[in-house]
Simulated assay, not measured.
Amino acid sequence: MGSKCIRRIMWASSWRGLGTSRRKPDGLREAGERPREAPYRQYHEGVKSLKIIRDTRRSFDLDRFLQKPLFAHLSTQSSEGPRHSPIWFLWEEEQLWFIGTTADTFPNRILHQPACAIGIVDYDPRSGGVFHAGFRGRAEVLPYEHNRVRRLLSRYLGPNEPLWDPRFQNLGDGCVLIRFTPETAVVRDQSYAVGEGDRELPMPEE
C-alpha cells in the first residue's frame, strides 16, 4: 500500500464518529444563536479515572455537588444480605472518605467484601430540585488520619472544633478511615417543576 493511501486512511479515521453535519467552533456562532451547553465531561477534567454515566438529558457539576455537606448512603454486602449505612463523607483525591467507629459494623463487611455502592441525593421539595449521584466501586479500611478526619467533620460541624458536639471531639481510639474508590458514577438531575399551590408542604407531626 502506498504512502498516499495510508495518509488518506489515517485522515479519514480521525474524523469517524463526528457525523455529517458541520459544527461551528464556540467562538464562531452566528449572531443570535444560543451557545450549546458544553458536554458534561468537560466539567470534570479532574475526575479522569471515573466513568461518568449520563442516561438522561439533564446533569450537573459532580465536583461542586460533592462539596456540599450531604448524607451519603453506603450499601455493603454481608452473609445475611445487603446492608445500608448513612454516612458523612469527604471528597478528596477523586475518592470518597468516611469514618468508621467502634460502633460501626460496615468496616468489617468491607474487609470481607470491598465491592460496594454509594448513593447521594440533594433534594429540595420547595423548589423541586432533585440531584442524584450513584457510585459503584471498591472500599478499603485504612488507619485513622487526624487531619483528614478533621477536614471531613468540619464540613458538617463547622471550623470551630471546640464547639463541636462532644461525640465528635477527640476521635481516634478504635476509629478507622474508609477510602472508597469509585469506578462508575451515575449523575442525574431529576428536578421537577413546582406549582404555586404546591409550595406549602405539610410538615410531619411530632
Score class of each variant (00 low, 15 high):
residue 126 R to H: 14
residue 19 G to K: 08
residue 106 F to W: 03
residue 33 E to W: 02
residue 90 L to W: 01
residue 13 S to C: 09
residue 117 A to F: 01
residue 78 S to N: 02
residue 112 H to D: 15
residue 113 Q to P: 05
residue 84 H to W: 08
residue 150 R to M: 08
residue 63 D to R: 11
residue 184 T to P: 00
residue 130 V to S: 01
residue 17 G to C: 09
residue 6 I to Q: 06
residue 173 D to N: 00
residue 154 S to T: 02
residue 32 G to C: 06
residue 138 R to S: 15
residue 155 R to Q: 10
residue 141 V to A: 01
residue 107 P to V: 00
residue 12 A to M: 03
residue 117 A to M: 04
residue 181 T to Q: 07
residue 96 L to C: 04
residue 133 A to T: 05
residue 187 V to Q: 07
residue 145 E to C: 14
residue 182 P to F: 09
residue 205 E to G: 13
residue 41 R to G: 06
residue 37 E to S: 12
residue 25 P to K: 13
residue 128 G to H: 01
residue 50 L to S: 07
residue 60 F to A: 03
residue 36 R to E: 12
residue 19 G to Y: 04
residue 93 E to F: 00
residue 164 W to N: 05
residue 151 R to E: 11
residue 154 S to G: 02
residue 161 E to A: 10
residue 183 E to K: 10
residue 66 L to W: 09
residue 48 K to L: 11
residue 143 P to L: 14
residue 71 F to P: 03
residue 180 F to Y: 07
residue 118 I to Y: 03
residue 188 R to C: 05
residue 30 E to M: 11
residue 72 A to K: 05
residue 135 F to I: 02
residue 30 E to W: 12
residue 164 W to K: 02
residue 82 P to G: 08
residue 24 K to G: 04
residue 11 W to V: 06
residue 100 G to Y: 06
residue 21 S to C: 03
residue 41 R to C: 04
residue 114 P to D: 05
residue 197 G to H: 14
residue 37 E to R: 11
residue 3 S to L: 09
residue 49 S to G: 13
residue 83 R to N: 07
residue 49 S to Y: 06
residue 85 S to M: 01
residue 66 L to R: 03
residue 53 I to R: 10
residue 28 L to W: 10
residue 154 S to P: 01
residue 138 R to V: 08
residue 127 S to H: 05
residue 133 A to G: 02
residue 192 Y to K: 13
residue 127 S to T: 15
residue 85 S to K: 06
residue 162 P to A: 06
residue 206 E to H: 03
residue 48 K to F: 00
residue 129 G to C: 13
residue 63 D to C: 09
residue 202 P to G: 09
residue 8 R to K: 13
residue 57 R to H: 10
residue 205 E to V: 12
residue 21 S to T: 10
residue 82 P to L: 03
residue 200 E to A: 13
residue 105 T to S: 12
residue 151 R to P: 07
residue 38 A to W: 08
residue 29 R to C: 05
